[in-house]
Design a protein around this nucleic acid. Structure first.
Lengths: 269, 269
DNA sequence: CGGAGGCTTGACATATATCAACGGTAGTGG
DNA sequence: CCACTACCGTTGATATATGTCAAGCCTCCG
């Protein structure tokens, strides 16, 4: 593993700092550093692991972004999720014993891997690390659950609002702030992750623009009216309590241009 | 109240047997039995825990069935997932510290609860239990991922086929067999879990009937052409070693790798 | 026997996918 | 540095699937 250009790596695996600031002791951190393998940064499109390969390590994003996809029966890939700096992926392989999806870098990306057997041994000795791992996995389930709710219960605008807000929340600075977000993925990938075609995705972007919710040019997004966006995405229980914003459904949208902009049809019945 | 006929409760918490047949030693099993609280069976509609309540225990279904729902901003509930006998729920609360969805019994149901602090203590002493728990959680993520793929990438018939096959696979006998399945939930709930209205759900059922895929009367389903159903649901790609998975759409994935067996799952806790 | 809710079906509205074309942008190579 | 080429994003016209509204029947339960 050659070293390309370490951005700001105080720790061997930036991720570990995020996961366990002071929760884990110094000794645990040392052990983790030892078993963490830093991989050289790879260009966009690189496959990190492939569906079906034997499981041996879990991964974390250091810089860049990764998408996980499953190979549809047809051969098309269905985008499942995105992993941003500080987030783990490959966890589903724990159960299956092999990777059940394929991880692909969306841009120039550096990841680190943690040998799972080795990690388990360290965890055997450190209760705090165990707890951390369980919390981690629980959090992944939580995210998936939110996505499920967004997908199952809502129309295109709500879905897009959801994924945009989720990405902004999860993306670290400086790629994201309260007002802006730089998307690491194409419109096609973004939309497909929430079950939309590229065309629909683009059209909804246009809607958002016209309604003054965002200003988007290319992969640069500026949030102009977060409150209304959140109202559209509503239903999603944010994993972050601090982020929780009252359901102030400012939904008094101008019901005009064929647009149902505020709360869309709820699957309801 | 507890006049429920014990199906085969050799263990206080049937679930534990399923989770850990021989993997865990007898001593661990004893510890688990001690900390498991068996709850009396409750009628349909009973709320097991509510979104927002403080987290203290994870649950498992002994008999009956449970749905997890999130309260939409509007107040409507969005059905997230179903829990069948032997499956756990409430796991998402580990991360959040409080329950992030509400669990409701779909029919007369008996559950048991495991105090999470107590469980953690036992796990601290038994590596095998720890592994089992991680596998469990990984399996939950896996199930959610499958659901995500089904929801995001496919039309109504595929979604319904997916959920029907998933339920048949996960439902223990005698409620399910290779050919039959007794659904514990209404059409409305079934459909909503995969983002469909009751009307659409009903129509697709009709389609399936007309095409000779199933015979459904009320909540009783008989599978007449599992192969074609699997073909429709395809999206759930069984992990194949090579990337060239796509066989034919006829779902000849057959018995071996056709489905992921994740034993106990929770999507939403 | 009566009422309530669940299921089904029909007619209609509309959101979204599909097909198609075009313009912009960025990366590539001259 | 410029031109070229892909790809990405956008937009339009059209088809289709699914949600919505509405009504009726059946089943289960009281």
């Amino acid at each position: 593993m050659d070293n390309d250009n370490p951005p700001s790596e105080s720790s061997p695996c930036l991720v570990l700092d995020a996961v366990s600031p002071a929760v884990l002791g110094a000794s645990v951190m040392d052990r983790l550093r030892q078993l963490a393998t830093q991989h050289a940064s790879v260009p966009a499109g690189t496959t990190l692991y492939r569906q079906g390969e034997p499981f041996q390590a879990i991964y974390a994003v250091r810089v860049g972004a990764v998408k996980t996809v499953v190979n549809d029966a047809a051969g098309d890939g269905q985008v499942l999720s995105f992993r941003l700096p500080g987030e783990f992926f490959g966890l589903t392989a724990i159960h299956a014993g092999h990777y059940v999806n394929t991880a692909i870098a969306l841009e120039r990306t550096a990841v680190c891997s943690l040998s799972f057997p080795a990690l388990s041994r360290v965890a055997d000795e450190h209760p705090a690390l165990r707890r951390q791992l369980m919390r981690l996995m629980s959090g992944v389930i939580l995210n998936e659950q939110d996505a499920h709710a967004a997908l199952a219960g809502h129309a295109a605008p709500a879905r897009l609002a959801f994924i945009l807000l989720a990405l902004r929340r999860r993306m670290p600075e400086p790629e994201a702030s309260a007002e802006t977000l730089r998307l690491p993925m194409s419109r096609a990938d973004l939309g497909q992750s929430v079950g939309l075609t590229p065309e629909t995705t683009s059209r909804v972007f246009g809607q958002f623009r016209r309604h003054g919710l965002i200003h988007a040019s290319g992969r640069r997004v500026r949030f102009l009216d977060t409150v209304r966006l959140q109202a559209m995405a509503a239903s999603i229980s944010p994993a972050a309590p601090s982020r929780q914003v009252p359901q102030n459904v400012a939904g008094t949208t101008s019901a005009n241009d064929g647009g149902r902009c505020s709360q869309a049809a709820d699957g309801g019945g």
